[in-house]
Nucleic acid binder design. Sequence first.
DNA 1: GCCAGCCGGTTTTATAATGCAACCACACAA
DNA 2: TTGTGTGGTTGCATTATAAAACCGGCTGGC
Lengths: 155, 155
Amino acid sequence: MVKRTSFAGDACPIARSLEALGDWWSLLIIREALFGVRRFGEFQNKLGMAKNILAARLRSLVDHGILETAPASDGSAYQEYVLTPKGRGTFPILVALRQWSEEFDDRPEEIATMLVDREKGRPVKKLEMRAEDGRLLTPAETTLKPRPSSRRRSG
Amino acid sequence: MVKRTSFAGDACPIARSLEALGDWWSLLIIREALFGVRRFGEFQNKLGMAKNILAARLRSLVDHGILETAPASDGSAYQEYVLTPKGRGTFPILVALRQWSEEFDDRPEEIATMLVDREKGRPVKKLEMRAEDGRLLTPAETTLKPRPSSRRRSG
DNA sequence: GCCAGCCGGTTTTATAATGCAACCACACAA
DNA sequence: TTGTGTGGTTGCATTATAAAACCGGCTGGC
């Protein structure tokens, strides 16, 4: 088995996320979906990717509960792909990726768009990590703890 | 050319981030690096990945300015890989991935660790997106705007 | 009804990336 | 000089990706 090692059984939540999202196209498909794209052809057009790959990714995203197929919407007999809550929950990931580019990209002038506060039209602030009590946290002020692990451990 | 389509020239900052981070291993390597892992063998051990792939990824991360090689540190004549500021800047991305797993994973009981506030030992809050004036923003309260595009457009 | 054409894929075929194992170079020790 | 451990590179098999051809269901013209 030379398969592209699966992280599905990994205990690390980051690896588990990457299992679902960590290929070249999934996050871009989700990005389009967040913009309202729903139809196969529309994804294919915007992303310019091969149709077989798109089909495989859409299937995978559906399997992972990130997209679901809805039967109609514009009357045509085709189906569409819409985000589930789990899918919409990836929004912070996309924002984090975007902000990383904005902050560190070598050619920021090539970046075409900015994420702004719709009401004011001003750029959103960097994502903030806070403690339960509201204190702003830096990476150094955090650490990892083993989970309580509600039994289940033995096996 | 069947190459795995590069996003390097893409104007979308998300695609640009994925160009550097969007393969199966890069973010996991960075995760380990954030934990203090520096040596080739240590990465290889913790991640259990093929050495050639690890070498290729490390080289790519160095090329992208995410890691840099430092000549020594423990006296041995070998080198180590340490995160640059750009590399440490991926922290929010990893947190976002982690939190997405924590919130939506189908088998959350398999997740081994929690990110906590070091001082209090309590879980950190979900990443928050805020406007310049501090208002908490939902995805729907944001939108994309074309960048000012400081000339350079014509060509 | 019959052919043209679009949408939404699947199949086919070629190439690139991945993974494993073997190999190699260098440092250091004996 | 041989032996061991680290830090990789090289070969080769397997898998994923990509482009393009193909195909079925539906729509529309006639």
